[in-house]
Design a protein around this nucleic acid. Structure first.
Length: 272
DNA sequence: CCAGTATCCTGCAGGC
DNA sequence: TGCCTGCAGGATACTG
């Protein structure tokens, strides 16, 4: 579900809502997620701790605490982080509740449970975080992107989706960036000219910036911690638009299965 | 190294 | 109305 713009929107919202707040009580569902910490260790690490400024790397959120420990969160496909009045009604599939010192509660909701939350003790590095590739919002992204892509003998879409190569893109924004750059998803990355790769890097940045300005894309689950949806869905050019006319050339948008997932593109204006 | 498939889990839309 | 199938914004562990 959430890709970089959604996770970054969540981070910004949390920066307003939880920084300086102290955890006064916590509760967890006990249900398995992709990763879940020891309840006892979690309690010891979080109780009476204050949140510092949260950070994001790729699709991962790092909720730093005053102690130097970190609550690492990934939203998977259907995860939400909400900050709500602690007396407000709970929704189904709530897995973690942190009551804060302002009568608000940070709640992690995730129906599919492909997401996770985990404790990262001070000074300890998480392997999946360490293995992440380029950060698309970093200033030197464009330059490094061209270098990385040129040496890979793989279809460009599969590379863009690979978090070890580029961190933060998912199925929506990969499709949108490729359409904007007029690159066919099955093109071999190494066969694209430097000029086209620079263009692709530029369009990746542009689509992420545009989505971020709209607070992300809400298809069904996504909400920012204040409960608001993202508004970028209306701006999608190809994702989820199978059979509809391309807004550039009127050709029908195609959907194919690649790497087990739907790939949307315009067969006319996206070339190898 | 790479592609493809299966897996975790719930919810929803569409066809019958 | 209900039942069944396929699909969904992700990541990882297998196989060949």
């Amino acid at each position: 579900m959430p890709e970089l713009p959604e996770v970054e929107s969540v981070r910004r919202s949390l920066e307003r809502a939880i920084v300086e707040r102290r955890v006064e009580e916590l509760w967890s569902s006990g249900l398995a997620m992709r990763r879940v910490p020891e309840p006892k260790a979690l309690r010891e690490a979080l109780l009476q701790q204050r949140f510092l400024r949260p950070e994001r790397r790729g699709k991962y959120l790092q909720l730093w605490l005053g102690s130097g420990d970190c609550l690492l969160v990934h939203l998977g496909m259907s995860g939400r982080l909400l900050v709500q009045d602690s007396s407000s009604e709970l929704v189904a599939h709530t897995h973690l509740r942190l009551r804060l010192d302002d009568e608000q509660e940070l709640r992690l909701i995730d129906p599919r449970r492909f997401g996770f939350y985990d404790l990262l003790p001070r000074g300890q590095h998480d392997p999946s975080l360490e293995a992440l590739g380029l950060e698309p919002l970093a200033p030197d992204f464009g330059q490094r992107f061209v270098q990385v892509m040129r040496q890979r003998e793989r279809p460009v879409r599969s590379l863009l989706l690979d978090q070890h190569v580029i961190a933060g893109l998912g199925n929506i924004y990969v499709a949108e960036a490729l359409w904007r750059a007029k690159v066919h998803p099955r093109s071999m990355a190494s066969s694209l000219s430097e000029r086209r790769l620079r263009r692709l890097a530029k369009e990746i940045r542009a689509v992420l910036d545009d989505a971020l300005a709209a607070s992300g894309t809400t298809l069904r689950d996504y909400r920012s911690p204040d409960g608001l949806p993202g508004y970028f869905a209306v701006s999608l050019a190809v994702y989820g638009r199978e059979g509809l006319p391309c807004t550039r050339c009127e050709s029908g948008i195609q959907r194919v299965q690649d790497a087990g997932r739907s790939s949307f593109f315009c067969p006319h204006c996206q070339r190898s």
